[in-house]
Design a binder for these strands. Structure first.
Length: 577
RNA sequence: CGGGUUGUGGCGCAGCUUGGUCAGCGCGCUCGCUUUGGGAGCGAGAUGUCGCGGGUUCGAAUCCCGCCAACCCGACCA
């Protein structure tokens, strides 16, 4: 393959786009890989399409060698299957729906669990047909409230989704393991430094769930690692170690007048000033903060729910929603309408609504909390004695330095990442919904269990750009660079002709080649563009052409070496992906 | 969904306060000549429904109303 810059649909921008913030977005636009075409929708220009296709090829290769079979479903689907699985409502506003000319409801699919399940139901009937692993590349649609970051979060994006169907739990776990390994190979091959973290499965439903996060400052996911063990988790999935049971030796509950203390800070200050309970060492962590939220279950009436967390912590709404999924939660503030709930002075004792507590609010722990009367708080409020939560919930914010639940020794560190892959065991959620049964070897019906495995392909382009750039531009990993070598004709005197000739030679030897043969463009411009575009190797055909020498530049290391023209293919090939 | 900021040639911006040679600048683009190893020089050009709709006015990029879009922030605590 040989591309000539003089004819390539490419326009690099000298100046920054005004509204591009994140590095990948800025650079991909400036270097001429993508262009915005719609809110949350991007056109892949020739260079961008080449990268996308190379990533696609890597994924396809690994999926096939993991035993996958490729199919392709429509993106435009009727409502019924999603009605059956309940996702028409559960997916909420994120689902991009439309009506056809007859008024019938359709959707532009956000993922394709339903269609894969129906296909397998349609085409299998016997245990002999299993196990099955299917995958596709497909444009997915989500009606994002706020697309951002260019390719990082769009309303339309390319995704590889795969689904495994097994008749045994062991088979399903094995499929999960194979896909997990395949994903590691994919991300390693395309040059993404990634961490596998425990996750929640969200609106897709399911149990065991892990995310592949590419570390990047602009990532929307926060994940934790452990200083001692190799535990890693999305903050949404972090579990809080339950403190050792405390003997219930606390003195009886006592109510105090605590005027003007609607906030934890004011309460702690007053408690110390007045030596509440004979102490002057109260801290926010001794208090129990009770937050009321309105929970919206899809297709059901909203419910009021109180959440109890130690007073030194905020409620993390993302963690809360993950814990309540598929329901969504909003902070409740209509206290005028609920006289039972005294804003700023809520306590769990005798509360009339459902009450879920942080795991730290373990039986036997004693708290300073609201007395459910204006201007009054209670001390020695003991969990399990003075109140019993309706359950525990992981909704409190996670902080660096929190103890690790996995090993019990280390503490948590926090980083940000881009979700580039998500794998989870779906179980029978969809095979149940569609009543998929096949005949087992014993003649009895068996219901397949599923796994679901997704990779954001277009997002991966941006993730790679986030991880591989410098102040001059992009620095593509060799395995997915749009081409292997960028030949720059630096000057005059037949250098363009020589560059094209060299390009043709390299191309015949199987390399992907881009030749900057633009006439009347100065060498400086060509060098700057080459660095912006970020091809791993550049070959400069320039002033020593007469001696048969050209310069090879490594984009990443900036290293320059002069080599005889005849050796170029060998040197490039040694490093090409 | 809320808040903030912004919409003026392909890109980046000025002009708006105080309505009337305000349709302007830089980059890019076209043509010619020169130049050619680090975003070249000179000369000559082309490109605008000033986001959209309505209103005020003799006259609107500029003032008023409505809408749309983009970007950023927040999805905020007892």
């Amino acid at each position: 393959m040989l591309l000539r810059m003089s004819t390539l649909l490419l326009k690099t921008l000298r100046e920054e786009l005004a509204d591009a913030e994140v590095p990948s977005h800025r650079l991909l636009v400036r270097a001429g890989f993508i262009r915005r075409a719609a809110p949350g929708g991007y056109t892949m220009l020739p260079l961008g399409k080449l990268v996308l296709d190379r990533i696609t090829a890597v994924i396809q290769e690994e999926m096939l060698s993991a035993g996958g079979q490729e199919v392709s479903f429509p993106a435009l689907l009727p409502r019924e299957p999603y009605e059956t699985s309940n996702r028409w409502t559960e997916y909420g506003d994120l689902l991009l729906t439309l009506k056809d000319r007859r008024g019938a409801d359709h959707l532009l699919a956000p993922t394709h669990e339903e269609m894969f399940t129906l296909l397998v139901q349609d085409m299998t009937g016997s245990y002999r047909d299993y196990p099955i692993l299917l995958f596709q590349f497909q444009t997915k649609f989500r009606d994002e409230a706020r697309p951002r970051g260019g390719l990082l979060r769009g309303r339309e994006f390319l995704m590889k989704d795969a689904y495994s169907f097994d008749l045994s739990e062991a088979g399903s776990i094995a499929a999960y393991g194979r896909m997990r390994a395949a994903y590691q190979r994919v991300f390693t091959r395309i040059g993404l430094e990634h961490t596998i973290v425990s996750a929640t499965s969200g609106a897709m439903g399911g149990s065991a769930s892990e995310e592949f996060l590419a570390a990047a400052e602009v990532g929307e996911d926060t994940f934790v690692g452990c200083t001692v063990c190799d535990h890693a988790a999305n903050t949404e999935a972090v579990t809080t170690p339950v403190p050792a049971p405390v003997l219930a030796t606390a003195p009886p509950l006592e109510v105090h007048d605590t005027p003007d203390t609607p906030t934890i800070a004011a309460l702690v200050e007053l408690a110390n000033n007045r030596r509440l309970g004979g102490r002057d060492d109260w801290t926010a962590a001794d208090t129990l903060k009770n937050v009321v939220v309105t929970v919206d279950h899809p297709g059901r009436d909203p419910e009021l729910l109180a959440i109890g967390v130690p007073g030194d912590r905020e409620v993390d709404m993302k963690r809360l929603e993950a814990a309540l999924s598929p329901a969504t939660a909003t902070l409740f503030d209509d206290f005028a309408a609920s006289p039972d709930l005294v804003k700023g002075y809520i306590g769990p004792q005798g509360i009339k609504i459902r009450y879920l507590a942080d795991p730290r609010v373990a039986p036997g722990t004693s708290w300073l909390t609201g007395a459910n009367e204006p201007g009054r708080h209670a001390t020695n409020v003991v969990a399990g004695r003075d109140f019993t939560p309706d359950g525990t919930i992981e909704a409190a914010e996670v902080r660096a330095g929190d103890p690790c639940a996995a090993c019990g020794e280390g503490t948590l560190t926090m980083r940000r990442g881009i979700e580039i892959g998500h794998i989870f065991q779906l179980g029978r959620r969809y095979t149940d919904a569609f009543k998929v049964d096949v005949l087992g070897s014993d003649g009895k019906p068996v219901r397949p269990t599923m796994g679901s495995y997704g990779i954001g392909v277009s997002r991966a382009v941006a993730a790679v750009a986030e991880q591989h750039h410098d102040d001059r531009g992009l620095v593509w990993p060799a395995a997915i660079a749009p081409v292997d070598v960028h030949i720059v004709a630096a000057g005059k005197d037949g250098q363009v002709e020589a560059a094209l000739e060299l390009g043709a030679t390299l191309s015949r030897s199987g390399l992907r080649v881009l030749v900057d043969d633009r006439p009347n463009v100065s060498a400086g411009v060509k060098f700057t563009d080459a660095e912006l575009i970020g091809i791993p190797k550049a070959v400069v055909v320039g002033r020593r052409l007469g001696e048969g020498l050209v310069e090879i530049r490594d984009r990443k290391t900036q290293e320059r070496t002069e080599v005889p023209m005849v050796d170029v293919a060998g040197v490039i090939r040694a490093d090409a992906g």
